[in-house]
Computed example of a mutant assay.
Amino acid sequence: MEWEIRVLGPVQLRGAGHVDALGSAKERLLLAALAYNVGRPVSLDTLVHRLWDDAPPGRPGASLHAYVARIRRRLRLIGAGERLVQQAHTYTLELDADRVDCHRFQSLTAQARSLSDGGNDTEALRLLAEAEELWRGEPLAGLPGQWAEHIRGLLTERRLPTQLIRTAAELRNGHFADLVPDLTALLAERPTDELVAGRLMTASYGLGAPGGRTARLRLRTAPSA
């Protein structure tokens, strides 16, 4: 892909042979706020709230327009052209959703799920590996504010179905050695998740490792949700 917007990690623009981390946290937050709703108009009031919560500066519109101008210039520099469109009290980032890593992640996961359900685990696993490579760390890393924190949580939760599709396909194909460390780490994050614990037990038994008993014990002793 010749250029893209990244939010699955630090917010960045990638294109023209380099990565642009943008000039300020507010620029990154604005780009993320528009990219999350790519192709749809976002009102000025919504953008002001996403950038400043309930404590905007004295002239939030002027500050917002200045950040928009900077992002437009950066988009042109990576070869994206004129993608940020202003209409009556709204801004729209007009581009293919697959140019934004979080939306591409969702698309790849949906395709992989369909393939896996149809019995094509090989192609499903290839797409899932491509989806996982999009993650570079915590979503919207380092960005402050209520909206950023909320979206961080949503995007992190959306990663779980991808991991579950992959582990199911890997189990069906007997890839136990690859799964045990991944499922052990996932169970540490979700100690009461019976599905994850069950898959760790299956992978551990298949490998002949003691992790199945560990998973049972962890699930048994975990506090109830």
Rank of each mutant, 00 (worst) to 15 (best):
V100Y: 07
T221R: 09
E123H: 13
R199Q: 15
R70P: 02
Q106L: 15
L93D: 00
I78L: 15
V7S: 13
L187V: 12
R76C: 10
A141G: 05
L160D: 05
R199S: 07
A169E: 03
L187Y: 11
R70A: 14
L84W: 01
L47C: 03
V42N: 00
T156A: 15
A215C: 06
D96R: 10
T156H: 11
R40I: 01
E130Y: 01
L77N: 11
D53F: 11
K26I: 11
A148I: 10
G81K: 09
V196I: 15
L164A: 04
R213M: 13
V42G: 01
K26P: 05
V19I: 14
G208R: 02
E133I: 01
R126G: 02
G119R: 03
D117R: 07
R126N: 05
A110H: 15
R216Y: 07
D117C: 07
R99Y: 12
L95H: 05
W135Q: 11
W135I: 14
A131I: 09
H103V: 00
Q146F: 05
A129Y: 05
R113G: 13
R6N: 12
R152D: 07
E132F: 14
L140F: 14
R70C: 02
T221D: 10
T122K: 12
R40M: 07
G23H: 12
A168G: 15
L140C: 10
Y205V: 13
A129L: 09
V180I: 09
R172D: 15
R220A: 11
A148F: 09
Y91A: 00
L143A: 07
V11Q: 01
A88L: 11
R218A: 08
W52E: 02
N173G: 13
A33M: 04
V85Y: 05
G81P: 02
A124Y: 06
A215F: 03
V85H: 14
L143M: 09
T92Q: 05
D53S: 10
G17S: 04
R152W: 04
L75N: 08
T46H: 08
R28L: 07
S24C: 01
H103F: 02
G208I: 07
P161I: 00
T92C: 09
L75S: 08
R136T: 13
L51H: 04
A188T: 14
T221Y: 04
A88G: 11
V11D: 01
A112S: 02
A21H: 12
K26E: 15
D53W: 11
R190E: 15
V19Y: 08
A66L: 08
A177H: 06
C102V: 04
L187N: 07
A32Y: 09
L187W: 08
N173A: 12
M201Y: 08
H103P: 06
V85K: 13
L51D: 01
P57M: 03
R152G: 13
L128R: 05
R136V: 09
R213A: 15
R218G: 02
A21Q: 14
L8H: 01
I151P: 03
R74T: 12
S107E: 05
P144R: 01
Y91H: 02
